[in-house]
Design a protein around this nucleic acid. Sequence first.
RNA 1: CGGAGUGUAGCUCAGACUGGUAGAGCACUGCCUUCGGGAGGCAGGGGUCAUGGGUUCAAAUCCCUUCACUCCGACCA
Length: 578
Amino acid sequence: MRTSLYLLATTRETPADAVVVSHQLMLKAGLIRKLAAGMYTWLPMGLRVLHKVTNIVREEMNNAGALEVSMPVVQPAELWQESGRWDIMGDELQRFKDRHQRDFCLGPTHEEVITDLVLNEYNSYKQLPVNIYQIQTKFRDERRPRFGVMRAREFIMKDAYSFHIDKTSLQQTYDQMYATYQRIFTRLGFHFRAVLADSGNIGGSCSHEFHVLADSGEDLIVFSDNGDYAANMEMASALAPADLDVSAATRSMQKVATPDSKSIEDVAAFLQVQPSALIKTLIVLAETDTASVQPSLIALVLRGDHQLNEIKAGKLEGVRSPLTFATDTDIQATLGCLPGSIGPVHLNIPILVDRDAAVLSDFVCGANSDGFHLRGVNWKRDCNYLRVEDMRNVVEGDLSPDGKGVLSIKRGIEVGHIFQLGNKYSKAMNAKVLDENGRNTVMEMGCYGIGVSRIVAAAIEQCHDEKGIIWPDNIAPFHVAIIPLNAHKAPQVLEVCEQLYKELAAVGIEVLLDDRDRKTSPGVKFADMELIGIPHRLVVSDRGLESGAIEYKHRTKPDSEMIAQGEVVKYLRDLIKC
RNA sequence: CGGAGUGUAGCUCAGACUGGUAGAGCACUGCCUUCGGGAGGCAGGGGUCAUGGGUUCAAAUCCCUUCACUCCGACCA
């Protein structure tokens, strides 16, 4: 391609509304333009990258035996009503009516459609397992789209769905997809981790997320420094504390006035103790089957310096899911005091205690009386609780639950997620096949997503410098940029460029020839090619040609080198691995 | 959905407090010079100052409405 015939939409200024570096660079390099909040046009340069990513994903999925289809973006409400998600999903499901007043939605995902397809087309266990995928535009009306294509409302996703006669078969495909994802993200040149994940709304049991490690990532991922354990923050657990003698009370309980001290920090400072010597008591709604006037409450107790993990807490028996904090009014009505002074001593609601809070002795807690706390409190002697549970977020330095090493926490961008759905959708939608005994059997399902458009942003987050993007060869929009210098003085410069252009194209190397006229200064050409992130650069100049040489420079290397004109094609062909 | 903020040229922004002919830089067009790291000169084109209403002799500017967008938080397969 020649720049004179291309849409080279680079800008000098950084658009004001871009916060993260990938968003800024995608706009500056002319890869995308915003149409509306969370909706982007892919310009020619960006689309080339997107297609490279898409092709890698497609190749690996095909190699794994998956079958590609394309399902509609618009889906009828009936399917979503069958699965029950029409009512469960919030406003991120974009609903609308057609001219006949029939309900439709924009597909945020395609479990319903694929299940409907498979239940019609597949009838026998002999046809299973099957893994069907598409690379398709999705729409989710995110409450807060941000970071460009990283969290867009309209985005491109590879979504695959597998169907099985039993759980063993599902596990096999799940393992195969796990390995396929490892290959895909390795080919994309990512520094990534697979972590145990919560399956959330989509349902199912076993689930892994694949994260690209990047400081701008929205998710926290946790992994052991000396073992295989890796999980996202929602799922991560630390090793349970060893059983300590919780009866080792050395102090008597004492009520102290703590005026105006409501937070853990305030109370710790006021009483001159560490936050870890305090406990905090959070009041949430209990699981109830009757809509009583006053909701029943449950207390969750944590060590003062620990944070509640709302996902883990929401899964605890007796706790309403999703986790819902009680209002101050409810707390006042039931407990007679406000948050800031609540504690487990003589508390008249069920109490669940985090494992690390349960091994404290002589601790400080609220006195259930506004403005007062208790010191020297001990579990066995002074309080009753229902159960000990794991309900806190892990922190850096916690022991790994597998007993190997310590936990570290890093930020990640979720680029892939695989789930074992089980029969959630197949059962709801009556997706059955005949088994070998001729009996109708509900199929087991797995689903496997990759955020294709997000991958482009993640790659930039992971590889850029102050000049711009640095693409790996695999997904670069062009492999090589050719920049002619002094072409107006020496006609042979352009001739050599044209010849190189043809020769490189002939061996499958993608070239962008910057043939903009002399009004575009060399500095502008260098800067543009660096901003766009083309990994290899050739400079053809009258000076170099005098000695029969062409200058080569890699985007990541500080210095260039001179290469004999006749060697250039071979040199690049050996260098570029695609 | 709560809190905060911003809408003026394609982009980045000034002008607003204190009402009085619409501005700069970049980008774009033409000519000249320059030519290995975002060149210089001259001359141009381009804005219904987000929208609707109000106050005023006069509104980009003051007041109100609506909309859009951004940030923080909550939320999120």
